[in-house]
């Protein structure tokens, strides 16, 4: 598998001296769905922000594949909160990344409509975010991330605040988009079950300082449907990942 990016001996130390991440080494291949799983404070979100270039690396390096000239143009980010602009309608929120690149309304309109269609919100293009449910807002956030056709999608616990049913639906939708558009995903989550369902690779991290303690392959075929959750293999994998996560807890100083 072609490598998309590589983290080598990456460290993050805050100004107050706290070591958030210690010697993180990670290769992410193209079209992988990688989950970062670990307890609170293990640096999952910090790692994601460093990959996005939103937080500087204090030691080590993040190297991108040569095939990506300007990687910033190929990254999209979905936050834990929908992070929509409440003063504009759904359409304008989704248009934003293109608008910032100077894409006109006429050019952007069919693209925005298409991506809204994909997330099932085409009839809600002209409503304000406050008129949508939590799940619908998150769909808008995903649509905004998709509009630039990213090569890498970073998702920071995007479904943590949603109810179980909505979360399952959005898990399936995310997988469908990932398979259709062939982008790479790095997905931060606290949920063992979610990570096993979505990923083909789970990176388990320990806290204080944040570090990688396990790299588990989930070699189950896609597409995965809700029936996968009822298989013994899914249960086995969940146990395996849970045990690794338990170890991560034991690694606390």
């Amino acid at each position: 598998m072609t490598t998309l990016l590589e983290l080598s001996e990456v460290e993050k130390r805050y100004d107050n001296g706290t070591l958030a991440l210690e010697r993180v080494n990670l290769k992410v291949g193209q079209h992988e769905f990688v989950s970062l799983l670990g307890p609170s404070g293990c640096g999952k979100s910090t790692a994601l922000k460093m990959i996005a270039g939103l937080s500087p690396v204090t030691a080590g390096s993040i190297v991108w594949s040569d095939s990506i000239g300007d990687h910033a143009k190929d990254i999209s980010f979905v936050f834990q909160e929908p992070t929509l602009m409440p003063w504009t309608k759904v359409f304008e929120n989704v248009w934003l990344p293109l608008r910032l690149k100077g894409v006109s309304l006429e050019t952007a309109k069919p693209m925005v409509n298409a991506v809204l269609e994909k997330v099932g919100l085409s009839q809600f293009a002209h409503v304000y975010p406050r008129e949508l449910s939590g799940g619908m807002k998150m769909r808008v956030s995903i649509a905004r991330a998709m509009i630039t056709k990213p090569r890498l999608l970073l998702m920071d616990e995007p479904f943590a605040a949603l109810d179980e049913m909505t979360r399952f639906k959005l898990n399936n939708d995310t997988l469908a988009l990932w398979q259709a558009q062939q982008f790479t995903t790095i997905f931060v989550t606290h949920s063992v079950y979610e990570s096993v369902y979505l990923s083909n690779r789970i990176i388990v991290m320990a806290a204080r300082p944040g570090r990688i303690i396990a790299d588990i392959a989930i070699d189950e075929p896609y597409p995965r449907t809700d029936s996968f959750r009822n298989t013994s293999r899914y249960a086995e994998l969940c146990v395996k990942v849970s045990q690794a996560l338990q170890k991560a807890g034991d690694h606390h100083d």
Binding site: K49, L54, S76, L96, L100
Partner: peptide
């Protein structure tokens, strides 16, 4: 302005003028 939205504008390399117009002013 919401810190995540600021990050988003930074991620998409918004110019100071775009950040002011589309994020800070609203």
């Amino acid at each position: 302005a919401d810190q995540n939205l600021r990050d988003l504008f930074m991620l998409y390399r918004a110019s100071p003028w775009q950040t002011l117009r589309f994020l800070l002013v609203p």
